[in-house]
C-alpha cells in the first residue's frame, strides 16, 4: 500500500506540510482563507528533537497500520480501516474519548482544535493522487510510495 514516508535527513522543519494539510482539508481549499476564516486541523505534525545542540525534525502522521490498534480501541465505531487500507475516522460517530490517542503506538492521532473529536491523516484521497503534504514538501522529505514495491 502507498503511504507517506518521512525522511528526517531531508526534513527542514519548515512546516509547509502542515500548511498544505490544513488547506487540503478545508472547505475553501485556499491557503489564506483556510488560515483566516476556517478552523481546520493539520493531520501531520513536525516533531522537533534536539540532541547535542543539533535539531532534527520528523514529520509525524498516521502509519495506516495493517492491524490498527486505534480501530481496536475505538469505543464508538468511528475508527475503521477502509477497503484501500486507509484508517479513517467518522467524525459524526467520534465521541472524543481519546482511546485511540492512547492506543496509537506512534502518537499520530491528536485531538482536533474543536476539542470534541479526534484528528488524523486520511491520505487526502479526495484531493487527487498525491497527498498534499508529500506533493508540497520542498526538500523531498515526504514521499508517497509503496515500500514493498520500491524494494
Amino acid at each position: 500500500m502507498k503511504k507517506v514516508y518521512a525522511f528526517e535527513k531531508n526534513c527542514l522543519g519548515c512546516g509547509l506540510c502542515e500548511v498544505y494539510c490544513r488547506t487540503a482539508h478545508s472547505k475553501s481549499k485556499d491557503i489564506i482563507k483556510t488560515y483566516k476564516k476556517e478552523n481546520v486541523d493539520s493531520a501531520i505534525t513536525i516533531e522537533e528533537i534536539e540532541k547535542n545542540g543539533v535539531k532534527t525534525f520528523f514529520a509525524l502522521q498516521c502509519r495506516h497500520c495493517v492491524e490498527p490498534k486505534c480501530v481496536q480501541a475505538c469505543i464508538s465505531g468511528a475508527m475503521y480501516k477502509d477497503e484501500n487500507g486507509i484508517v479513517r475516522n467518522i467524525k459524526e460517530k467520534c465521541v472524543g474519548c481519546q482511546s485511540c490517542i492512547m492506543a496509537c503506538p506512534f502518537g499520530a492521532i491528536k485531538m482536533s482544535v474543536s476539542g470534541t473529536v479526534i484528528s488524523k491523516c486520511d491520505l487526502c484521497t479526495e484531493n487527487g493522487d498525491e497527498p498534499a503534504c508529500a506533493k508540497n514538501c520542498p526538500n523531498g522529505a515526504l514521499k508517497f510510495m509503496d515500500l514493498e514495491e520500491d524494494k
Binding site: I32, T34, Y35
Partner: peptide
C-alpha cells in the same frame, strides 16, 4: 499582511 497567514515558515527558515 492580507496574505500572511502567520505560518512562521519564514521565521523558521531565515
Amino acid at each position: 499582511n492580507t496574505k500572511c497567514i502567520r505560518c512562521k515558515v519564514c521565521v523558521k527558515q531565515c
